[in-house]
């Protein structure tokens, strides 16, 4: 019998602690498949954040750091600068990257660190139990904005990848989503592209992946997928926002598939 589907080599065979319907597991797999396909696992170094994916070092089958809250891009800088032959990626949530770690991500991107950043945006703090994140949607109820996020008090959600795309330093910056099979396929393409660019020593690369949190959103997984499509996608448009200057030509299949999304 021919095996046609299995664990990627870059994932350990461990059950994850993620909630039912959470997209972290899917995104882990996309990263692992990319590492496998590009033959990078033996050089790969992952950096886990503080947040729901704090235990990612148990799930990726490569060398791993666990960083302090928000500082993964700084840890990645130290590792990559000292060992440019390693393939260094951070895996961070929205509280970690867009709140406490905003300085580190902006400066790592601006220095053009040749690392890959996987930014999982589910519009809420998951691990601590559903508090407001910088990416929480206007009107969205969380435990620390029980009446819904009020932009006149809390400002509007931060569009991180747009913000980083204004930097002059060459980079590959994209936003994808993980709530439908089609979106997952597209997310895989950009994640793989991000790793390819690092492997070819081209530039800083980052993919934001819109993600669901059924538990803290108080929705079933399928309701959560629908909520993401209706509320997040219009505010956080999908696509490749920035490419390194050395390669200004769009990647046609990515552009085409995103148009249909």
């Amino acid at each position: 019998m021919k095996k046609i589907f299995g664990y990627p080599n870059s994932l350990t065979v461990n059950p994850t602690h993620y909630c039912p319907g959470c997209t972290h597991g899917t995104i882990h797999r996309l990263v692992a498949e990319s590492l496998d396909e590009l033959g990078l696992r033996e050089r790969a170094v992952g950096i886990a954040p503080v947040g729901c994916s704090v235990l990612a070092y148990n799930y990726f089958n490569c060398d791993m750091f666990e960083a302090s809250h928000g500082r993964a891009p700084a840890v990645a800088t130290g590792a990559k600068r000292c060992r440019p032959d390693l393939i260094v990626f951070t895996y961070q949530g929205d509280g970690d990257l867009a709140s406490i770690g905003m300085a580190e991500i902006v400066h790592a991107a601006n220095r053009g660190e040749k690392i890959t950043v996987i930014f999982v945006n589910n519009a809420i703090y998951g691990m601590t139990g559903g508090q407001m994140a910088p990416t929480t949607m206007p009107g969205q109820v969380t435990t620390t904005c029980p009446a819904g996020r009020n932009p006149s008090h809390e400002g509007y959600p931060i569009r991180v990848v747009e913000l980083l795309s204004t930097l002059r330093t060459p980079a590959f910056i994209a936003r994808a989503a993980a709530h439908t099979p089609l979106h997952v396929i597209e997310a895989k393409r950009v994640i793989r592209e991000a790793f390819r660019l690092q492997a070819e020593d081209v530039c800083f690369s980052m993919v934001e992946v819109l993600s669901t949190c059924p538990t803290n959103w108080g929705l079933t997984p399928s309701e959560a997928n629908k909520w993401l499509q209706e509320n997040m996608v219009p505010y956080y448009p999908l696509g490749v926002l920035k490419r390194p200057d050395v390669d200004e030509t769009p990647i046609p299949e990515v552009a085409a598939s995103l148009k249909g999304a």
């Binding site: 750091f65 302090s68 840890v75 800088t77 130290g78 600068r81 000292c82 390693l86 580190e104 400066h107």
Partner: peptide, 14 residues
């Protein structure tokens, strides 16, 4: 300094 010490963490780690 916050970033610097975390860069040390990465560098010492490798």
């Amino acid at each position: 300094e916050v970033a610097a010490i975390n860069m040390l963490y990465g560098a010492a780690g490798v």
